[in-house]
Amino acid sequence: MESKEHTLSILVENTPGVLSQVSRLFSRKGYNIDSIASGATEDPKVTRITIVMNGDDATIEQLAAQLRKLLCVISVKVLSTEDAVQRELVLVKVKAETKDKRDEVLQIVSVFRASVVDISRETLTISILGDENKAGALMDLLADFGLMEVVRTGIIAIERGVRTIYEDTKESGEFNYGKNVL
């Protein structure tokens, strides 16, 4: 089967060691995480982890099933790029030692609707919010000036429309976990 990028949204109890429990499962089952982002939700007792990884559909389904076996996991949802809004924040420090170069960078930044968050005589630090493609395209252009440092938050994602991850919790009864349907 075809291997492609998948986004996994995972709701977990906010308890000590929960992130390591989740990430350990990936290494134990032999899967690589492309990006991972984690933070509290509207309920401080619940953390939402977003993981991006590559794999075929069957692999992702198996992994989601394994994740659901962890007691700290409340809900797992595989989000597709079409049905979900994805965002990532990237901070880029780029060399710009002359005014010409600074102007050039500022122009690119404005086209991408990114913003400059720090400036020095020799550098510009740029923040860009967007999906992976947008950040990638910007970094491509900035690479000409010399990338000094890049830091990314990892992708976070949320479903479009009225659907939420809470429809798929173990408590909500007959969802994929016990629906017996592949």
């Binding site: 069957a58 389904e61 659901r68 076996k69 976990y177 016990g178 017996n180 349907v181 592949l182």
Partner: peptide, 18 residues
Amino acid sequence: VDPAEIGKNFSTTVPVVG
């Protein structure tokens, strides 16, 4: 009884969990 067993070693036409 374990939904993660379904399809793990064997692809399945009709799975039943319970």
